[in-house]
């Protein structure tokens, strides 16, 4: 099915909180046009949105690559932020390192990574302290 892949690329701006979510919104639109079921679209857009917010909050932005096939949607979020010290702790609901500014905006409650996990079928995090983090998530359109 290699020829049946749609690839999208987005650059997430460094600290402009107001535009965070534009990439997710754009992917949502594309998936709608492709006729992907609503439930799948919601899972993809929420996971991607949370990740995009994280990239702005913690990592001064980054790059997102999205691969869409009839079987699955894969989202690879790559940043050059500080890295995650302890992934296991970061995955716990309620754990957050975000500062007060972020909390005032309605985020930073320690729900980002758990939400991404909740809404995706596969999620892998690769992180190197001082170099950056890659969050690779897949949502299956059809059951495997």
């Amino acid at each position: 099915m290699a020829e049946n892949v749609m690839r999208l690329h987005y650059t997430v701006s460094d600290t402009d909180f107001a535009v965070a979510g534009e990439a997710s919104s754009s992917v949502k639109k594309v998936l709608k046009q492709l006729g992907v079921p609503g439930e799948i679209i919601r899972k993809v857009s929420i996971a991607m949105y949370e990740c995009e917010i994280n990239m702005v909050i913690h990592a001064d932005g980054g790059e997102i690559d999205v691969e869409i096939t009839p079987e699955k949607i894969r989202m690879i979020h790559k940043d050059r932020g500080p890295g995650i010290k302890d992934i296991e702790t970061a995955m716990q609901e309620g754990y957050s390192t975000a500062d007060e500014n972020v909390r005032e905006l309605g985020f930073g409650a320690g729900m980002g990574l758990p939400n991404m996990k909740r809404y995706t079928d596969e999620m892998n995090i690769t992180t190197v302290i001082g170099e950056g983090t890659t969050v690779d998530m897949t949502v299956y359109v059809k059951n495997k």
Binding site: Y49, G106, G108, A109, G110, M111, P114, N115
Partner: peptide
């Protein structure tokens, strides 16, 4: 007032 809760 917590957007992450809305998303969760």
């Amino acid at each position: 007032d917590l957007l992450s809760d809305v998303l969760a």
